[in-house]
């Protein structure tokens, strides 16, 4: 049994596997299949100041080795999260990453302020949702805006602040440096890559929103590359995600520099994916006689 525990921004995770924001709701649905306690943490559904209804359906499309989504940040609002969801999750012995978003810097600040007096462990500020017209995609694609929203949210919270980055940029390392300089305690990446599918029989895009975010195994090599570039550019921890569907994928992303790994679309293919990934990581480490998963973080030996 290898030691799978990791520490990020002073917070202890029993293992590095975290269901990604948006695929796991607030945990109830998957709890029917396995105890949440088995997970290192959970990144909760992106939550905004007020309730949002999201985009018109269809919101989901299959793609080669992946999928598109345009859910559009549907969520019940931060007050509901704090009153109805958080107390339950806090009793579950795993790290809660409250994923938050907003249309404006002010909204992000207000949401973070509301979480300040709760026992949530970490805040994951999503500056990269590609699916809403004013959902923060703009923050995530400009160094100045990313720095500004980080700076303001930083002032509003004493909790460890993870900034979730968009891959839809020319240089993700530059954005990472910008948010680090304004006080981000960690970065997580990648959010989805903007994509599109068209039904060639009708000439209509499959998604009603026309475009949506690509995730799943198809994006994995992009995620590995970006995690590696960001890990080399900043001195804060990197939480990696994007297309991870096996323990080997998780190991690879950690070698590239990730201190923990989130799992998204893979859960739709196999609802037990996070649990299997934890077991497979353990098997891999044991087979290589590596005693702690921490030893592989950033251990890639580039040519």
């Amino acid at each position: 049994m290898a030691d799978l525990s990791v520490k990020i921004c002073g917070i202890d995770f029993k293992n590095p596997i975290i269901p990604a924001s948006g695929v796991f709701g607030y945990g109830h649905e998957y709890e029917e299949l396995f105890p949440l306690e088995k997970l290192g943490g959970i990144a909760t559904k992106g939550t905004t100041l007020h309730r949002r209804t999201g985009n018109i359906a269809p919101r989901i499309a299959e793609t080669p080795s992946g999928m598109l989504n345009s859910v559009g940040l549907q969520n019940p609002g931060i007050d509901h999260f704090i009153d109805k969801e958080l107390p339950y999750l806090l009793g579950k012995n795993l790290v809660i990453l409250a994923n938050i978003a907003g249309s404006t810097t002010e909204e992000c600040v207000q949401v973070a302020e509301k979480l300040e007096n709760t026992d949530v462990h970490m805040i994951e500020l999503n500056i990269s949702c590609p699916n809403v017209k004013h959902g923060g995609a703009a923050f995530g694609t400009s160094c100045d805006l990313a720095a500004e929203v980080t700076k303001q949210v930083r002032k509003a919270t004493s909790k460890p602040l993870i900034v979730k980055l968009s891959p839809n940029v020319t240089s993700i390392a530059e954005i990472a440096k910008a948010v680090e300089s304004e006080g981000a305690d960690a970065v997580s990446l990648i959010n989805t890559l903007l994509g599109m599918r068209i039904n060639i029989n009708t000439g209509r895009p499959i998604l009603h929103n026309n475009v949506g975010g690509l995730s799943g195994p198809a994006v994995f090599p992009v995620a590995v590359r970006m995690v590696w570039q960001v890990a080399n550019a900043v001195n804060i921890p990197v939480i990696g995600m994007g297309g991870v569907s096996s323990g080997k994928d998780a190991i690879e992303l950690m070698m590239a520099g990730a201190s923990a790994v989130q799992v998204g679309a893979a859960i739709f293919t196999d609802p037990y994916a996070p649990i299997k990934i934890i077991d497979e990581m353990n098997e891999f480490l044991d087979s290589k006689n590596i005693s702690s998963v921490r030893d592989i973080i950033g251990s890639v030996k580039p040519w």
Partner: peptide, 15 residues
């Protein structure tokens, strides 16, 4: 509707 998780977690199949 086109759906992903099938159990109400991902909010993909809105109506």
């Amino acid at each position: 509707e086109r759906m992903a998780c099938g159990i109400g977690a991902c909010l993909g199949c809105a109506c």
